[in-house]
């Protein structure tokens, strides 16, 4: 069965869609009222709120799909900003002709991810647009969390340590290969995962300064932005950065730099040197953090530098839109 324009008209078909797909999977009491607004308790004086829209091709990729990605992304944005994620709202824009089954699989993944990470999906909306007006399914989310810590780049100090919670580049590679329909055998899956259970224990550490999930633009871009807003610099050690052999090989073939590849289940953490080992221990005790590493340090000189494995130095800069060869 396919989604028709009528599924978004607000009539009978819409009702059918909500019941057969959304409510079937989104088993949250707050949602079931189907009122114009949901009343929630924030359990806190301060809340954190974030919003994001998910547009990704292909909708299903090795290691996840747009639904899982949207919930993880929202949870991660809340978490790295010092919040315990509580609630998520979801809005769908669906292209006419999309298979019911496709939508259902997406919704199922969202529900599972939310349940697993103790957040509730509490409000929703659906629109259907004519064929060709969008690409399959777009999802917009808003997330709300209880604010525990204020984490900003301005907290950082020279000498702080930079931690990455695991292998980088997996998501970027998985997406590139599946988007271009590369015919190669590879086990690289997107790392798409909710990070709240991994990261919220770090909120206890007083010298936790700042965290970010290095999504688009990857580790390098996130650190360049950190440097710009903190006024400090970063020294990264190439050989310390965890990268899967397979990702390394594929990057090498494609001519991509893994430092600029998107991740959907990793965090970059800046933390006081004295607490770095403790943080690492906490991270490593979690399944999602077992490959965490200290990859660098915060410096006073505003540059983002990579110390290469052969001892050279490279400045990391924002990537060109469309990098072209420069070697003559």
């Amino acid at each position: 069965m396919k989604i028709e324009i009528g599924h978004g008209s607000g009539g009978k078909l819409t009702r059918e869609l909500i019941e057969k797909v959304f409510l079937k999977h989104f088993d949250f009491p707050e949602l079931k009222s189907l009122q114009d607004a949901t009343i929630l308790s924030a359990e806190s004086e301060k809340i954190g709120i974030t919003t994001d829209s998910y547009v990704i091709r292909p909708l299903f990729f090795p290691g996840g799909n747009i639904g899982k990605l949207s919930v993880c992304g929202t949870i991660n944005d809340l978490t790295v900003s010092g919040n315990i994620p509580l609630y998520i709202s979801v809005g769908f824009i669906i292209e006419e002709g999309t298979e019911f089954e496709t939508l259902e699989n997406i919704v199922k993944a969202m529900a599972e991810t939310a349940a697993k990470s103790n957040v509730k999906i509490v409000a929703g909306d659906t629109k259907v647009v004519e064929k060709g007006k969008c690409d399959g399914v777009y999802i917009n989310t808003t997330g709300v969390g209880k604010n525990v810590r204020t984490l900003t780049p301005l907290n950082a100090q020279e000498g702080d340590v930079i931690i990455v919670t695991g292998f980088i580049g997996d998501h970027g590679i998985a997406i590139s290969l599946s988007r271009e329909e590369f015919d190669i055998e590879t086990a690289v899956l997107s790392d798409c995962a909710p990070l709240n259970s991994l990261l919220t224990p770090l909120f206890e550490i007083p010298t936790l300064r700042w965290m970010r999930d290095p999504t688009r633009g990857g580790l390098a871009t996130v650190l360049i932005e950190f440097s710009e807003s903190s006024g400090l610099g970063v020294k990264l050690y190439e050989e310390k950065i965890p990268i899967r052999e397979e990702v390394r090989f594929i990057c090498d073939m494609l001519g991509y730099d893994p430092l600029y590849l998107a991740n959907e289940g990793k965090a970059v953490i800046v933390i006081g040197k004295e607490d770095a080992e403790k943080a690492l221990e906490i991270l490593k005790s979690h399944e999602l953090g077992k490959n965490a590493e200290i990859v660098g340090e915060v410096t006073g000189d505003k540059k983002v530098q990579l110390i290469t494995s052969i001892g050279g130095v490279r400045h990391l800069e924002l990537l060109e839109e469309d990098p072209l060869p420069r070697i003559c």
Binding site: S176, E180, E181, F182, I184, M253, G255, L324, P325
Partner: peptide
């Protein structure tokens, strides 16, 4: 052969494969 296949696909799909008229 694995590398050749990979690179062939990059060429076909135009992935990170800019066009050139370079003599070098």
């Amino acid at each position: 052969i694995k590398k050749i296949s990979f690179i062939s696909q990059m060429v076909e799909k135009g992935v990170n494969s800019p066009k050139t008229s370079s003599m070098g």
